[in-house]
Computed example of a mutant assay.
Amino acid sequence: MKRIILFTALAVVLTLQTKAQQGLKAGDKAPVFTGVDQNGKIVTLKNALKAHRNVVLFFYRGQWCPYCNKHIKELQDSLNLLTDKDVYVIGVTPETKENIDKTIKKTSAGFSILQDKDDEIMKAYQVNFMMDEATFTKYKGYGINLEENNGNTRHTLPVPATYIIDRTGKIKYVHFDPNYQKRASVKLLLSKL
């Protein structure tokens, strides 16, 4: 409970920081990307769209975020509902492989999760933001060290956005909210497919 109160207080600060970030819009062409998932499988948007009618692409902050874990768990618990509609789910995070493994252990995620090692996917989808030094120090004081979690000193996190991308490569739905507590529910995603 204490951690949730902490995250709520920090939400206000981060919401202000990410206000300028807009993300891509419905109707935009989805940037193509390639990554390696937690199982060593090469995942490309192009190949996922060749094999499936839609891709649900979501960005999450890290295994230390209870809102991220709750969202990933919800996606995993309803994965059959999504795959029955010929959807391929891809998660993207700046966290290291070791921390992705912690996320999977916490959430039982069985879909592809990619480490965005150089923030390239986040930048392409315009969901990346740099945490200022004061906020980084606050997080560190609460036991969240982004440098250790992400394996770099950039202090970059994604706005936890979700995109539905159709077979033509167009974005057909976007959930983009700088308040990291708000996520697209599976029910909402299913209604947009």
Score class of each variant (00 low, 15 high):
M1Y: 06
K2V: 14
K2M: 14
I5R: 10
I5P: 11
I5L: 09
L6H: 12
F7G: 11
T8H: 15
T8P: 12
A9I: 15
A11E: 07
V12K: 12
V13C: 11
L14Y: 06
L14I: 10
L16G: 14
Q17A: 13
Q17C: 07
Q17I: 15
Q21R: 06
Q22A: 13
G23P: 00
L24W: 01
G27W: 01
K29L: 13
P31D: 12
P31I: 09
F33L: 07
N39D: 12
I42K: 07
T44M: 04
T44Q: 05
K46A: 13
A48H: 00
A48R: 00
L49F: 04
K50E: 10
K50M: 07
A51W: 04
A51K: 09
H52S: 09
R53N: 15
V55S: 01
V56L: 15
V56F: 01
F59G: 00
Y60N: 03
R61S: 05
R61T: 05
G62Q: 03
Q63S: 14
K70T: 11
K70N: 14
K70Q: 15
K70R: 07
H71L: 11
H71F: 12
K73Q: 15
K73G: 05
L75S: 02
D77W: 05
S78Y: 12
S78P: 08
L79S: 10
L82N: 00
T83L: 05
D84A: 08
V87S: 02
V87Q: 01
V87N: 02
Y88F: 14
I90H: 01
I90E: 02
V92Q: 00
T93S: 08
T93F: 03
T96N: 02
T96W: 02
K97W: 11
N99T: 12
I100Q: 00
K102F: 07
K102R: 08
K102I: 15
T103V: 07
T103A: 13
K105A: 14
K105Q: 08
T107C: 03
A109V: 05
F111G: 02
S112D: 15
I113S: 00
L114C: 03
L114I: 11
Q115S: 08
Q115W: 03
D116Q: 03
D116Y: 01
D116S: 05
K117L: 13
D118W: 04
E120S: 08
I121N: 02
I121P: 00
M122Y: 03
M122L: 06
M122K: 06
M122H: 04
K123S: 12
F129N: 12
M130Q: 08
M130G: 14
M130V: 14
E133C: 13
T135F: 10
F136I: 08
K138N: 15
K138M: 11
Y139D: 08
G141T: 13
G141E: 14
Y142W: 13
Y142L: 10
Y142G: 08
G143S: 03
I144E: 02
N145E: 13
N145F: 10
N150E: 04
N150W: 05
P158M: 05
V159W: 00
V159K: 00
P160C: 14
T162Y: 02
Y163L: 06
T168V: 12
T168G: 10
G169A: 05
K170N: 06
I171M: 02
K172D: 06
H175F: 09
Q181A: 10
V186Y: 01
K187D: 11
L188M: 11
L189Y: 01
L189A: 04
L190M: 10
K192C: 13
K192F: 04
